[in-house]
Amino acid sequence: MRHTLPLRRTLTAVLTTTLLAGGVLLGQTAAAEPAAAARITCNIDKLRSDAHKERTRAAQLRGLGAMAEARKAAARADALERRAQQCHDAENNNRPPLWK
């Protein structure tokens, strides 16, 4: 009978720890805000106008002979255009939830 007492204590401790950890995780997930609740908005016209300004700046830099800076400005313009297109696609391809 003596050898079962430590085993019983160990199993009880492990079970208690598991239940507490599960309860903490369950409480955190229930209280967490869903990712879809955060609303992200972007101004497509402003992104496109900023991209146009960067392209103009890149052309001016290229004309002055500053090729490295021109490449950076062109890369920034490409990134802004890509972001504007992503926002445009997200607005047009967005489906409402089933319950609405």
Rank of each mutant, 00 (worst) to 15 (best):
A90H: 07
R9T: 04
L26D: 04
R8L: 15
A75Y: 10
A75Q: 14
L64H: 14
E33A: 12
M1H: 15
A32V: 04
R57V: 08
R8M: 15
H88E: 11
L26C: 07
A32K: 07
R71I: 05
T41Q: 09
E54D: 09
R48W: 05
G23Q: 02
N92Y: 14
A73S: 05
Q28L: 08
G27C: 01
V14W: 07
E91L: 06
R62S: 02
T56V: 14
A59K: 14
R39E: 09
R8E: 10
A75N: 12
L80Y: 00
R48S: 02
L98S: 07
R48Y: 08
G22L: 01
A77G: 11
P96V: 10
Q28H: 10
N94A: 13
L61P: 00
K46I: 09
T41M: 07
R95G: 03
Q85H: 15
R71M: 07
P6E: 00
K46Q: 15
A32P: 02
A37Q: 13
L64M: 10
Q85S: 11
L11C: 11
S49E: 12
I40Y: 11
A37V: 07
P34C: 00
L80F: 03
A90S: 07
V24T: 03
H88D: 12
D78Y: 01
T29R: 04
A90M: 08
A73G: 04
R82I: 06
T10C: 14
R48I: 04
R76S: 08
V14R: 07
T41W: 06
Q85P: 04
A32L: 09
K46N: 10
A35P: 05
R62M: 02
A59F: 12
G63E: 07
S49M: 13
I44W: 01
L19Q: 04
A84L: 02
R8Q: 12
E33L: 12
L11T: 09
A37Y: 09
R9F: 06
R62C: 03
D89I: 03
R76Y: 11
A51S: 08
Q60L: 13
A79M: 04
A35E: 07
Q28G: 06
K46V: 12
D50Q: 09
